[in-house]
């Protein structure tokens, strides 16, 4: 599923579009520890995390991850937005918590697989 499409389906707000319109995501990794997210990295992954900082964008950049979703309605600060813009990472923010956000994403990807 395209990342921007996924964002609208799970009710997340897209802050920076990145390469999102052209990138398909079929994997989701959620976590609040950088090391875990590093290991989970993939070219078609979406990172879901509480870590609203530039480091998350850095991880996405180093590991070629196309998209990040912040949770709990967090608003990315200017530094994070700049970093995301610079590295063309799609940055979205979900009003829901980590668990619920992942649940919605899972639902979207699972329905897509069936059809």
């Amino acid at each position: 599923m395209r990342l921007d499409e996924l964002a609208s389906k799970i009710g997340a707000k897209v802050h920076t579009p990145g390469r999102g319109a052209n990138v398909e995501a079929d994997q989701v990794y959620a976590g609040d520890r950088i090391s875990d997210l590093l290991n989970a990295a993939g070219e078609h992954a979406l990172l879901v995390s509480n870590l609203a900082s530039t480091h998350l964008v850095r991880v996405a950049e180093l590991m070629d991850i196309p998209g990040i979703c912040l949770v709990n309605g967090q608003v990315p600060d200017a530094a994070m937005l700049d970093a995301a813009r610079e590295h063309r990472t799609l940055l979205m923010a979900s009003p829901l918590g980590l668990f619920e956000t992942c649940g919605r994403v899972y639902e979207c990807l699972a329905t897509e697989k069936q059809t």
Binding site: R33, I34, L37, S49, L51, S53, H55
Partner: peptide, 9 residues
């Protein structure tokens, strides 16, 4: 707090 220090480095 920034997500480091998982003891995985």
């Amino acid at each position: 707090e920034l997500g480091f220090g998982a003891g995985m480095g």
